[in-house]
Simulated scan of single mutants.
Amino acid sequence: MTAFTLSIKTAAELHAEDQARRAAAVTVERDRRINAGFTFDGIRYQTRPADRENVAGAASAALEAIMGGAQVGDLRWHGGVTDFAWIAEDNSLQPMDAQTLRAFARAMMAHKQALIFAARDLKDRAEIPADITSDAYWP
């Protein structure tokens, strides 16, 4: 004969476990949305981790160019022999002067930050909604 122990969870314990699962789902949804791209000046761009890293590097170079005197409209601010352009999600080339690239980087940062704060808001609720993938909860 084998002995076993029956464990009965309280309603509060079950609720806490459900909320923990929902909080984890919020994190997954936040990360999915952060990596799903964003729109800048009406054009869709990719925002995967490597894309964000590339934008951060280019934004640093753009700031250096601006500090060095790069003017609005100067598409050769990067020191190359061709105009600077960023590749959009549809693979079209989008020319950007240094000032536009900086605005693009700030917009990407704001997009990510808004999603992080929306996730924080969801997780801080007394009752995390079950339908956390609904666009109603996200910017």
Rank of each mutant, 00 (worst) to 15 (best):
A16M: 04
E17Q: 15
E17A: 13
D18Y: 03
Q19M: 14
Q19S: 07
R22G: 09
A23E: 09
T27M: 03
V28T: 10
R30G: 08
R33K: 11
I34R: 01
N35I: 06
A36I: 10
F38Y: 08
F38A: 10
T39S: 09
D41G: 05
D41H: 08
R44Q: 12
R44N: 10
Q46R: 11
T47W: 01
P49H: 11
A50Y: 09
A50P: 02
R52C: 02
E53T: 14
V55Q: 00
A59L: 02
A59Q: 01
A61G: 05
A61P: 01
A62Q: 07
I66L: 00
I66G: 00
M67I: 06
A70T: 04
Q71W: 04
V72K: 00
V72T: 02
G73I: 02
D74L: 01
L75I: 08
V81C: 02
D83A: 15
W86I: 14
N91Q: 15
S92F: 10
S92Q: 11
L93S: 13
Q94A: 13
M96F: 11
Q99T: 06
Q99A: 09
A103I: 02
F104P: 01
F104Q: 01
F104A: 03
A105Q: 05
R106N: 12
M108D: 01
M109S: 15
A110K: 06
A110W: 05
A110S: 11
H111M: 07
K112E: 14
K112Q: 14
Q113Y: 07
A114E: 06
A114R: 07
L115G: 06
L115W: 02
F117A: 09
F117M: 13
F117W: 09
A118L: 03
A118T: 04
A118W: 01
R120E: 14
D121G: 13
L122A: 08
